[in-house]
Design a protein around this nucleic acid. Structure first.
Length: 342
RNA sequence: GCCGAGGUAGCUCAGUUGGCAGAGCACAGCCCUGAAAAGGCUGGUGUCGACAGUUCGAUUCUGUCCCUCGGCA
């Protein structure tokens, strides 16, 4: 069987995850070069054009000739979400398989990774008008009314969601509004049980202290590279602070400073703090994601050494591909697809 | 050396007319199915500077000592 036939048949996908600033991008470029493939980003912020420094998008030089896909997909005032990501990513993965290349997904957006390897339920597209109406209603009558409304139409979702979690309450109401069926029933049917690929999940990790130090260093570097000017430019082009894209790390805090909400020092402090908290949330998410093989990086781990480690894992994974795919078919939907949890 | 102010959570501090100490920040744990770098939830045992005394009981009152910061020498 040729490599292309094998890839098309077993659909292997290598996924590298980990918290922000752990060092994913650097190793990704080297892996892609050695595998003669491309980098598929799983990053909800790098999809925005013109948001480069704040999202720590690799520069052309850093990409070193390796094509990076799934970045620069939309302008900052366009909607983007997990569903759009998945629909855009699947054809790229398919294309690489047909070219006999191993898809290499790299990113820190846990939900986006999950929509690739375990699917996404058949929910309706977001409805901005309806959302705006609900937000207005909550503003007028208080936040609790939405949760009460959800208790009426979808008690299961209401019980699961805290009354303060307006974002998710609105999504649940939106699903009922558009479909006439509760979100909970759609979730129940789906259960993240799809297994469209044979994934190899590799998680990169560092000691908490070392990770936090790297985060601070990266924020300093982003500021030195002109983060403030980038944010100023986006605002000048009319991208409002209230846009979802402008609520991301870096943009939110610097826009607050530029608007005079706080001084520069405070903005930097908050940006570092919020990035630390974000990394912590990512770790919580990935820790419970089944099937991740974790690699703990040493403080001074050379990138080449890490690349070799990961390549060795990939070789083993590819060698067992037919067998693993067979086993998965037999053990059905519950299988964690090709790897055991670490 | 003398005079004053203070030593309480990782930090900044509040407080107890004597009854097993509390806020902000920091931090930690968690949830998540088309907003996910978003959004939400939970978590406070700390020799109340040390030792002795008074008291049923002291972080609180008394004494001595140690340390920090001012001022005067």
């Amino acid at each position: 069987m040729s490599r292309t036939e094998e890839f098309v048949r077993f659909k292997p996908v290598v996924v590298v995850v980990g918290p922000t600033a752990v060092g994913k991008s650097r190793v990704a470029v080297r892996l892609a070069k050695r595998l003669q493939t491309e980098v598929l980003a799983a990053d909800s912020r790098q999809v925005y054009r013109g948001m480069d420094i704040g999202t720590d998008k690799p520069t052309l030089e850093e990409r070193d000739g390796v094509p990076h896909r799934l970045i620069d997909l939309v302008d900052p005032d366009e909607t983007f979400n997990a569903g759009i990501y998945r629909r855009t990513a699947l054809p790229e993965i398919d294309r690489l398989h047909r070219e006999g290349r191993l898809p290499l997904v790299v990113g820190g957006t846990g939900l986006y990774v999950r929509t690739l390897i375990r699917g996404l339920c058949e929910g309706p597209e977001a409805d901005p008008t309806f959302r705006a109406e609900l937000e207005e209603e909550a503003r007028r009558k208080g936040a609790e009314v939405l949760h009460r409304e959800l208790t009426r139409v979808d008690p299961k979702s209401a019980a699961r969601l805290h009354p303060h979690d307006q974002v998710k309450i609105i999504r649940a109401l939106e699903v009922y509004h558009l479909l006439g069926r509760p979100l909970s029933s759609i979730h129940q049917r789906h259960g993240f049980g799809e297994l469209p690929f044979s994934p190899l999940l590799i998680g990169l990790m560092r000691e908490r202290k070392a990770l936090y130090r790297r985060i601070e260093e990266r924020v300093d570097s982003q500021l030195a590279r002109g983060l403030v000017d980038e944010v100023r430019g986006l605002l000048a082009r009319g991208y409002d602070r209230r846009l979802g894209s402008m609520k991301g790390l870096g943009y939110r805090q610097i826009a607050a400073y530029l608007a005079g909400d706080c001084d520069y020092t405070e903005a930097v402090r908050l940006l570092k703090r919020d990035t630390r908290r974000f990394a912590k949330r990512q770790l919580t998410w990935f820790r419970k994601e089944p099937g991740i093989l974790w690699l703990s990086l040493a403080e001074d781990e050379p990138v080449e050494q890490l690349t070799n480690k990961v390549l060795a894992m990939i070789e083993g994974f590819l060698a067992g591909l037919g067998r693993e795919a067979q086993a998965n078919k037999q053990s059905g939907r519950m299988a964690a697809a090709g790897v055991t949890a670490g």
